[in-house]
Amino acid sequence: MMKVFERLGSSALLQFNEIGRMGIFLFYSFLSIVRPPYKPGPVIKQMYVIGSKSVFVILFTGVFTGMVLGLQGYHTLSKVGAEGVLGSFVSLGLIRELGPVLSALMVTGRAGSAMCAEIGIMRISEQIDALDCMAIDPHKYVIAPKFIAGIISMPLLTAIFDVMGIFGGYLVGVKLLGGNEGSFFTSMYNNVGAEDIYMGLMKPLCFGVLIIWISSAKGFYVHMTKGGGFGAEGVSGVTTSAVVLSSVAILLFDFFLTSILI
């Protein structure tokens, strides 16, 4: 019986330890962002990795999400004779909810996993220690550019997702199913307000921080992972856990952010 309590206690302590570590990591990361010197080169490189390289997947998923919304929305709304508001249905659904969440999930899968693996490999091959020994702050050199790039890229990617989604909805609702083009756009103009755009940009900003934070911290502390965080297996383990944790965190925070911003 005591062993069960010991294990529970030990597991709880490890969890608290990890939460504390992640908190300190976030603090130092933000500190290193505001501290000079400011070098745009590494940020631009990371914007290419996180942003530009994710554009194709965002275009693709955006247009198909909009097409599904157009299809489902048209059939549901036509049951109550309201197919004229399809434009606002598609655009509000995308701008307020689906755009930020799905873009974030896509970026997690594409860039978050790569980032976690890259930092994890740097840790196990002593490259992070080498930076420390050269008196180069790894937070400033490795992590800060990723945070800045994530914060800038996420809202832009989401905006692309939204535009492509609306185009997909228009394609199916108007061109394929024969809905009225005028009412599609009029309902969108009339119902989408500044507060919707604000919510649609605030969410990806927060999700950007979440993705980079979890993915980087998991890789950065791969050597402290419970159950042996060494070698290729250790890196693959933390990469999986970073993707899962980021995805769950995105959905959880989406609820809280919606409650605050609605």
């Binding site: 740097m122 091959s125 008196a135």
Partner: peptide, 28 residues
């Protein structure tokens, strides 16, 4: 950090940055 400016380290596995060239590693 100030103390570490006096240090140089040759790690067991060299710990070179694998995404950088030889020149960039030394120039870092």
């Amino acid at each position: 950090k100030e103390v570490r400016t006096h240090f140089g380290v040759l790690f067991q596995n060299s710990a070179l940055f694998d995404s950088m060239t030889v020149y960039d590693n030394v120039a870092l």
